[in-house]
Write a protein that binds this DNA or RNA. Structure first.
Lengths: 210, 210
DNA sequence: CGGTCAATCGCACATATGAGGTATTTTAAA
DNA sequence: TTTAAAATACCTCATATGTGCGATTGACCG
């Protein structure tokens, strides 16, 4: 392997101490190089878009544009860019937002240097490195949160509501009368504590009921 | 640490060869023990529910009840049970369904023994081990898939549709007339290629537009 | 300068929906 | 076998919705 082929890493991190520490860890490791570091997204974006590195380490808490918005802007321009969030927070909501914005990895800042370097390599090879506790939060996010105690029939009808079918169509497909469909939907709304179709579909999908 | 404290692993796998190979890998490794193996979910469920192991390795393709359904039944009874899917398939849909059913890890069958043991330890410690390519598919699943080219105003209205607000309420909140709301919604429906509120909300949420 | 598009506003009408109530039958559990 | 829950069915009525049409304004672009 050519000496030139070291993985080019860029860092966006506002705290000077951490930034320089990361830079040293990476730059002093064979196979890795860190030529560019930034203390804000505003500084980082133009350069990173013009000449994308192999991997970006992105802090979430930044003055001005936060790391999640920055990640969004970057992936909008360069969808295949590998961005690893590197932060203290393990708030499920921030993890969710980061991944939606296009992050491909998510590490906690207490990650030891060796693991950090492994993660950079892994994301380079098409993986999605995450700290164990983060990965767990991600998998847990797929689970249905609350149990609304819907009957099978109700779930069936709710599914069809999400598909935009109207009362008559549902009735025909399930071989029941439109009146019955209305009654079921009334019960669904009561259990879901909603009173419109839009809310019902929304609650159903967000809670993975269907 | 006590010698008794080895991690108790159970295996559900129909192919005898693979099952016995896994059993050996685990049972011969210090700190791990595999006392129970099954060739079907039907066989496995009663025992696993009665006396849950620390970790379950679950195949997806099984005769009779498949591994995803089995995982669902298990987590219904024991939500905190650690189940690692162990399969050849990396189909995003199966990954999604597995995680929804309650799987906490997902490994490909070509995972080398060392990595497998590491994964078992990791899931035991609250992580969610995944093969790199699987993890990447999981993170990618958070990204908005298709761009429907909605204007900011349209996204704003779409968001409110998902919250079940009616035309008049939306109009009042955005300080525009109900007529305008209708026009926007008409345009949203056209762009999303739907013609009911339920479908619009569904498409919006599934594609992470809002 | 002409063209395009987003955002705004308007009218009319058939149908779908949500909300109120009541009641029978089937299934499952106690 | 009694009871409870789920599934079924019906009625009425005010309002929301989807859709057909047309129109004006302002911003931005070539």
């Amino acid at each position: 392997m050519d000496i030139q082929e070291s993985i080019r890493v860029a860092i966006v991190e506002d705290e000077q101490e951490i930034r320089e520490l990361l830079e040293q860890i990476i730059d002093l490791s064979p196979g890795f190089s860190c030529k560019r570091t930034f203390s804000s997204c505003e500084d980082a974006l133009p350069g990173l878009i013009a000449d994308p590195p192999d991997v970006v380490l992105m802090d979430i808490n930044l003055p001005g544009m936060d790391g999640i918005s920055g990640t969004g802007k970057l992936t909008e321009q360069i969808p295949e860019l590998n961005i690893i969030m590197l932060t203290i927070q393990d708030d499920p909501d921030l993890i969710y937002q980061s991944l939606c914005a296009g992050a491909t990895g998510y590490l906690l800042k207490d990650t030891p240097p060796v693991k950090l370097l492994q993660a950079i390599e892994e994301v380079r090879q098409g993986g999605s490195p995450m700290s164990p506790s983060i990965a767990r939060k991600v998998t847990m996010s797929f689970r249905p949160a609350v149990n609304y105690d819907l009957s099978d029939r109700e779930k069936e009808i709710l599914t069809r509501l999400t598909q935009g079918e109207n009362y008559q169509v549902i009735a025909a497909e399930l071989f029941i009368s439109g009146h019955t469909v209305r009654t079921h939907i009334r019960n669904i709304y009561r259990k879901l504590q909603v009173n419109t179709r839009g809310e019902a579909v929304s609650t159903a999908l967000r809670n993975k009921i269907v």
